[in-house]
Computed example of a mutant assay.
Amino acid sequence: MLFLDNLSVGYGAPRGAVLDALHLTVEKGAFICVLGRNGAGKSTLMRTLSGLQPGLGGNARLDGEDIAAMRPQSRARRIAVVLTERGTSPGLTVDDVVSLGRQPFTDWRGHLSPEDQAHVKAALDMAGADPFSGRLFDDLSDGERQRVMIARAIAQSPRLMVLDEITAFLDLPGRVEVMALLRDHARATGAIILLSSHDLDLSLQLADQIWLLDGQGKLVVGTPASLIEAGDIGRAFDTPAVQFSARLGRFELVQ
């Protein structure tokens, strides 16, 4: 479903490519966590795969179509994006914001059909945002807003969902719940879900596959178990003070 063909991502001079010549295939229904240190290029990669930022070379294709060349409405019907930025929606209720996920499928009047309304209600329930229904979006806490934005993405019924650091404002139970529901959603619908995260422990427990950015322009891809066994996790994250224990599957302070 998703094919990266010699894709390079980054910026113009002087910074240049952050990741170069990526070549891989992602099957439908995959829940993928994108990991790496700050500045490794996670957000740059996610924005490029969302069509929000042009690549420097090659392409990323979804269902055989170049994402960068998609028309805006076609892209909106197939790709949902949730970013870390704290958005505002003056005057809009939670229901209004989630309903925007159905906008690419409505007529020119933006009228929601009964099917659209069913998608919205199901998305609110799935994301645990139904208790906020009817409230003004701007009155919500950061964690509540993230649940609403996840609900909007689910309501969009995308083939690819790109989520950049969306668990940052959630407490630990909330992070576990959201990551588990996204994994289950991918498996139930066949959508590909890419989630960048600093929550290494949960990512290693829940992801089907890890995309690991090593900070040196290299993307290492594998299952959590294979990357732990090969020592890739430790090489990417170890510091003189903290090191990853492959035996325990977690970080430990260096004595």
Rank of each mutant, 00 (worst) to 15 (best):
P54A: 14
K42T: 00
F169S: 14
G55H: 07
L124M: 10
L160V: 03
D130E: 15
P173F: 07
E115Q: 09
T239Q: 11
E115R: 07
D138I: 00
A180P: 07
R77C: 10
E144Q: 14
V18D: 01
A80M: 13
D208Y: 04
L124G: 05
L22A: 02
T93L: 14
D138A: 11
L7A: 04
A40D: 01
L227Y: 02
S133E: 07
V221F: 05
T44F: 02
A180H: 13
L160T: 02
P224W: 09
K121E: 14
D130A: 15
P131Q: 07
P224A: 06
A207Y: 02
G128M: 03
Q103P: 03
L253F: 13
Q216H: 15
V81R: 00
L83W: 03
G10S: 13
P114Q: 05
A21G: 03
R77K: 15
P14K: 08
T239G: 09
L206S: 05
R15H: 09
H185T: 11
G10V: 14
Q73D: 14
A168Q: 03
R78L: 07
V18C: 02
Q156V: 04
P104M: 08
G128E: 03
F132E: 12
A76T: 03
T84F: 00
D107K: 09
D20W: 01
F132M: 15
N6Y: 15
S197W: 01
R47P: 08
G29K: 10
W211E: 01
F132D: 12
E65N: 15
I192C: 10
V97N: 04
R102W: 07
A188K: 12
R159S: 15
S113E: 05
G64F: 11
G249Y: 08
N6T: 15
Q216F: 09
R175M: 02
A21P: 00
G87D: 06
S197M: 02
G215Q: 08
W108R: 14
R15S: 12
A188S: 13
G39D: 05
A151K: 01
D138N: 13
V242M: 13
I228Y: 02
T167S: 10
S133V: 09
A246C: 04
A207T: 02
T189I: 08
R250T: 14
V9C: 12
D214A: 04
N6F: 14
A151Q: 00
A118N: 05
I210V: 09
P131L: 06
D66R: 15
E27Q: 13
T44Y: 01
P104I: 08
P224T: 08
A17E: 13
G36S: 09
G222A: 01
A60L: 11
A186W: 01
A13Y: 12
E65I: 15
A30G: 08
V120A: 04
R187Y: 03
I228Q: 00
S203W: 08
K218G: 11
L112E: 01
Q53R: 15
V81I: 11
V220P: 02
Q156A: 10
R61G: 12
S226V: 08
D138H: 09
S74K: 14
T84G: 00
L24V: 04
D107T: 12
D201R: 12
T106N: 02
R247V: 06
V98M: 03
